[in-house]
Amino acid sequence: MTTLLSVHGLKVAYGGIHAVRGIDFEVASGELVCLIGANGAGKSSTLKGLMGLVPHGGSIHFDGERVQHAATHTIVARGLALVPEGRGVFGRLTVAENLDMGAYIRRDKPGIKADLARAYEHFPRLAERRAQLAGTLSGGEQQMLAIARAMMGRPRLLLLDEPSMGLAPLMVQKIYETIATIAGEGVTILLVEQNANLALKVSHRAYVMESGAITLSGPSAELANDPQVRAAYLGE
């Protein structure tokens, strides 16, 4: 497996607060890696740093090329996509327009059309509501839309920030089935979750983050059995 993303000494600071204190991690092509940890551990800041949304230090290589200090839209053009925390759908655009925005960087009309059809096939709920404003969708539908929209850009690395947040258990299950399906299609995924149980089940490897640093890492199945992890994150 080839390394798709490699991060060394990533630091993110807001004003005087160090949210991420120099972390190293890697994601290989085709992997589903998760980053778990408590609220405020620096997980979201890590993703924002990767996307160039916040000032950051350290080095980030994507597919062998350095990407840090680039503008966010150029990072997106290289094949990274982030589904932000809280979904970030455009509430006053229709579902269809939201999906079109996901394909903004692409120019291949037939390919976009085919992907749109596939997205609707994947998410029949979105097909039913394609002409509706995204703001009128339920939280779970918005999360589906946000993921489908990110996939419209055909990313090579999909970053998901707390996709289960604020959703009913049944909807969480659906979202995780979707994530597993996308991963099964060969898309590389970096998943950030507070819900360690879920994340460890679906992922190949995991990193545990605590106050801005990575404290543990390894195959997800092993971490799920690690007494320390079980005590701290799985409520046992």
């Binding site: 949304l53 503008a71 839209h73 997106v76 455009f90 925005m101 996901g102 850009g153």
Partner: peptide
């Protein structure tokens, strides 16, 4: 229209 709603998310869609 996307930028009017959220500059950050518009950037995430690849909008300059």
């Amino acid at each position: 229209r996307a930028t009017a709603q959220s500059k950050e998310v518009a950037e995430l869609m690849g909008v300059n």
